[in-house]
């Protein structure tokens, strides 16, 4: 069922269960966060600049900017669906979830890309449940690394990805190396938005289905599946064409080709699984840092 696509009628429920609620967020907590967010919006719109600052390390101006940014980004989320824009049926829900999240996790705040994840959840869940799934999803190690823009850790993820890239697609890997095409070029957008911006929405939801079961590993496996699917064309392109192609994938992807290609990717490298490769690289990094404290940030 996971690979065939979960029926839309139960998809939200299945996602919720698979993501879990490690953070023990209740509907009441959501209400509290939301009402705090609403207070802030009110004081913002009344021009109050003296917002209390106790629970956030951010200066008031930054937080104000981030609330402002949420407003602007909502209308830029899936613009072609015309449901999240002002006056659209899902506008307020998206606004609520993102606003509540900035109150729940002021240390993370709002980061561009989040609006897409929240939007996909809203399409499948009630607002409070979407908030619970959203917060727990973002709390996963890979998502936290990206949304906090922990550059060192992101590079470790990219390095682990490259191990499997070379193993699965050596010819394309060499071509990318030759063209200085590093994984950040295409992975950042894919991972930040969990493919919801770059893939057609129905395919993105099916990626989420398996991602909910297999975890972060599947995000990177999907990336390799995409590269494998287009290996022949990509091998004939130069830097800018590859970069443009991968950041705007063809819209006529068929789900069958797509998932067949992902299924053909081996997530084993010299008998090591994704998690093992990743943790080995993390360990190397820590040792490197210890040896050269000057490079620490």
């Amino acid at each position: 069922m996971w690979w065939q696509g979960i029926p839309p009628s139960v998809r939200g429920k299945v996602w919720s269960l698979a993501i879990g609620n490690e953070l023990n967020i209740t509907h009441e907590l959501y209400d509290i966060c939301l009402s705090r967010a609403k207070d802030r919006w009110k004081s913002l719109s009344m021009g109050g600049s003296e917002m209390e600052n106790e629970d956030s390390g951010l200066p008031a101006a930054d937080r104000e900017a981030s609330l402002e940014l949420i407003k602007l980004d909502i209308s830029r989320t899936f613009p072609s669906l015309c449901i999240f824009q002002k006056g659209g049926p899902y506008h307020d829900m998206l606004h609520s979830i993102l606003g509540a999240y900035t109150c729940y996790r002021p240390d993370v705040g709002y980061v561009q890309g989040m609006s897409f994840i929240a939007a996909v959840l809203i399409l499948n869940l009630d607002t409070p449940d979407a908030f619970i799934a959203f917060s727990n999803l973002l709390n996963k190690p890979c998502q936290m690394a990206f949304f906090r823009v922990d550059h060192g850790l992101m590079l470790t993820y990219f390095a682990a990805f490259e191990v499997f890239f070379e193993e699965n697609l050596p010819r394309l890997f060499a071509h990318f190396k030759k063209n200085n095409l590093t994984p950040d070029i295409y992975l950042i957008d894919w991972i930040f938005t969990l493919y919801s911006k770059s893939l057609p929405l129905d395919l993105a939801c099916r990626v989420w289905d398996v991602f909910c079961r297999d975890g972060e590993e599947f995000l990177f496996r999907t990336a390799l599946g995409i590269l494998k699917l287009f290996e022949d064309i990509l091998t004939r392109m130069d830097f800018i064409h590859i970069a443009q192609f991968l950041t705007k994938l063809p819209e006529d992807l068929t789900s069958e080709d797509f998932f067949t290609s992902i299924a053909a990717i081996q997530m084993q490298s010299r008998n090591k699984k994704w998690a093992q490769v990743l943790s080995a690289l993390q360990k190397d990094n820590r040792e490197m840092e210890n040896r050269s404290p000057a490079l620490k940030r």
């Binding site: 830029r76 613009p79 890309g113 609006s115 950042i188 800018i240 443009q244 950041t247």
Partner: peptide, 13 residues
């Protein structure tokens, strides 16, 4: 009229 927010970097030529 509306465009997606850029996440990371986009490419044009």
């Amino acid at each position: 009229q509306v465009s997606d927010p850029t996440v990371g970097v986009d490419f044009f030529s």
